[in-house]
Amino acid sequence: MINYPFLEKGATVGVTAPSSGVPSELHDVLKTACNRMEEKGYKVIIRETTWKQDKAKSAHAKERADEFNRMMLDENIHIIIPPWGGELLIETLEYIDFNNLQNKWVLGYSDISMLLLSITLKTGLATAHGTNLVDLREEYSDETTAMWESVLSTKKGESIIQHSSKKYQKEWQHDKPTPCVFHLTEQTNWKSALNNLVKIQGYLLGGCIDVIRHLVGTPYGDVQNFKENYIKGQPIIWFLENCELSTTDLRRSLVQMKLAGWFENCSGIMFGRSPANTPVNNYTVEDVYKELSEEIQIPIIYDIDCGHVPPQITFINGAYAEIQLENGRGTVIQHFR
């Protein structure tokens, strides 16, 4: 059985940096994001690692993990939202106290998705793949991003529906700040490797493939154990996004996941829009999707609202989902059961 946390109004947000912290020149950005959260009625507690960044990490791995563990045990903190992702979260996993995780949300993406997926696979505690804290710093959020509160305030036994965005952001324009942090200029169009109409159901698992692929073969990536002990053999839908991989590196990663059994009893795979997917010798990402779909005989949906090309739908690791793609528009219904 999956355990679903619940976000209450006036909750206290714990901010810690299990991957990268915020360098001094960007402290004002972090402070602005925290102020916005307080304006929305939340209380905010920021711990030490958040303010530090050196050698591609906020602190030594054990210090990062210990701070996260203390936040998880702190009854006065109700949800944990790191400032953003980073590079070396994997160093912390051996120090995370998975046996004493409390029933509270952890929200984030990018390198944080490695922690999210590990928690859900090892414990059956649902985790939230969506916006990070610094992207909540402006006056308001777009409709897609803003759904994070509604999704995390869904009670066990209830359902929540989200729709694909109307437009997405092609590139950052930090020199042109607006009341909404994202500059949404491009028409969103979800696609499929084979069909225009796709309907799939299953339990959601996923994250940034650049990092979660490194869980294969470790105690933190035991998908089979999760299937047997938490969802009783029900099908899985994978949501994946590529931050920096070329098409051949993406292909290698997907084949490794397939050989490790991650795609057994999988009803479908969804891929987010990507700033990468660099073709190699005329080998395109569409080729990757088509080959994988044919090999494992499941639908593949791509260019969805997930990952490093915002905005993002809030996907819950461990939720049972019904996904529909029709004429470029996507619908995601998540059941907290």
Rank of each mutant, 00 (worst) to 15 (best):
N189I: 15
C180Q: 08
T127Q: 01
Q187V: 13
L115I: 03
T127F: 13
G124Y: 12
L184I: 09
M71N: 08
A146S: 12
D66G: 02
H183I: 12
P83A: 08
W148T: 06
N100Q: 02
G108L: 04
K122N: 11
P83N: 09
N76E: 07
S118G: 08
P83F: 01
K191P: 07
W105I: 06
R137H: 02
L194A: 07
V106P: 03
Y95L: 02
C180N: 10
F182N: 04
K155C: 05
N99E: 08
S150A: 01
S153V: 06
K191W: 03
L117W: 00
T123F: 03
T131E: 10
A126M: 03
K167T: 14
G86I: 04
A128V: 03
L184Y: 04
I112P: 02
D142M: 02
W84I: 06
Q102A: 07
Y109E: 10
D135L: 13
I96A: 08
D111S: 08
N76G: 08
P82W: 12
N103V: 02
Y168V: 11
V151K: 05
H174R: 14
L107Y: 10
V151T: 01
N69M: 11
E143V: 13
C180I: 11
N189V: 15
D175K: 06
H174E: 15
T178E: 09
V181S: 07
W190K: 12
F68P: 11
D175Q: 13
K191A: 14
S164E: 06
L125E: 02
D74Y: 01
N195S: 09
G124S: 09
H129W: 07
W105H: 10
S164D: 07
Y168D: 05
V134H: 10
L194E: 03
N189D: 14
Q102C: 00
